[in-house]
Design a protein around this nucleic acid. Structure first.
Lengths: 197, 197
DNA sequence: CCACGAAGATAACATTTGTTAGTTAAAATT
DNA sequence: AATTTTAACTAACAAATGTTATCTTCGTGG
């Protein structure tokens, strides 16, 4: 009986959640079966249930883990100093880094949240809505004091967020440019599209 | 026995494919069952098979329908006149309009192509790769003759394409700005992020 | 008006899926 | 070393899924 290997401070549940992220990313939540997951963990499917309550619980963990990190960051940025453009850039860099470093979780959270079930679903949607409004508010500030072009702020937010999710393609491409220059390029184009001059 | 209603020049298969697009968009390909589809068409599940070969065939139709339209457009734009920036703008406007007008098909093609099976899968991936290279080539031209900032062209493509897919959120939002001003805003930000000055 | 083909319904199928119950082995604690 | 707790296994389930075979009904062209 080969047990799930664990290192210090990493529970077996954490191992499962991480493997689930990779699997859900690859196949999609619905198409990924618990038997697939079990195989990737190195255990029988039923054994997983010693550590988790259900398949959907895995999705909760992933989605809200990511959502909370973003919420925390926007708290920090809103409260902190800096011009509107600087704040947008900070937030954007955070998004980009998250998508580079925690690719699988962020991607899954972004694409598969539809398969959450209530009350988690509405909860997640709410958080998302609020987050975008706060992001838009930063941009609107920038528009008011002429830092930023006169554009529709929600549209700008929508562009930023979705553009970042394109990093998925970067991960999969065979000849990647470096992570740093990916980040810089994205900032150049996206922030460059906002600034007023 | 309620038959599938058809208008002139619209086959029953077309009706099914269209309904499938809406359903796949809403639930995702895997989560949408043939029984769901049947209900939305107004018929029993098994009856669908008088018109289609399989569930995956529906996905083929959608994905390649969309892919072909984009290929045709880039042919036209490449061959036609205009500066690099103008060509990028044309292509971008086409993407935006497709996402606005044929929301469901385009969205499904974009998100669900993973569930195609070979040889369709590799075929689709190839087309996609080629399309992006051609898009990138247009941008590289623009960089060479200083119309466009010195950026990584594939990254720019990735941003453009994914930003456009954000129109999904626009469709779902309750208080939409008009389609025209959505288009203009997106062009302003995205093309504005490219131009050299 | 009748016959034939198109399009529908019913029933059933083999798989796959998430999950539970019951049991055994390994680790941790005493 | 003995015992208790944790985590694995096997077996099985009910439900859902894509699809096929067979039969019935409708609409249209001769």
């Amino acid at each position: 009986m080969a047990r799930i290997k664990t290192e210090k401070n990493i529970s077996r549940k954490d191992v499962i959640v991480t493997k689930a992220a990779a699997l859900f990313r690859e196949k999609g939540f619905k198409a990924a079966s618990m038997r697939d997951l079990a195989e990737s963990v190195g255990v029988e499917a039923a054994s997983l249930y010693n550590h988790i309550k259900s398949k959907t619980e895995l999705l909760h963990e992933l989605c809200f883990g990511v959502a909370n990190r973003f919420m925390q960051k926007i708290d920090e940025i809103e409260a902190g100093p800096g011009t509107a453009i600087e704040k947008v850039e900070k937030l954007l860099r955070f998004h980009i880094n998250e998508m580079i470093e925690h690719y699988e979780e962020v991607y899954v959270s972004d694409r598969e949240w539809k398969h959450l079930s209530d009350p988690y679903l509405s909860n997640f949607q709410n958080q998302r809505r609020i987050y975008r409004k706060r992001f838009a508010a930063i941009i609107e500030n920038g528009i008011r004091n002429k830092e930023i072009k006169k554009i529709d702020a929600p549209t700008a937010v929508l562009i930023m967020l979705h553009a970042v999710s394109g990093i998925e393609s970067w991960h999969r491409s065979t000849q990647k440019i470096s992570a740093e220059s990916l980040e810089d390029n994205m900032i150049t184009i996206l922030v460059g599209g906002l600034v007023n001059r």
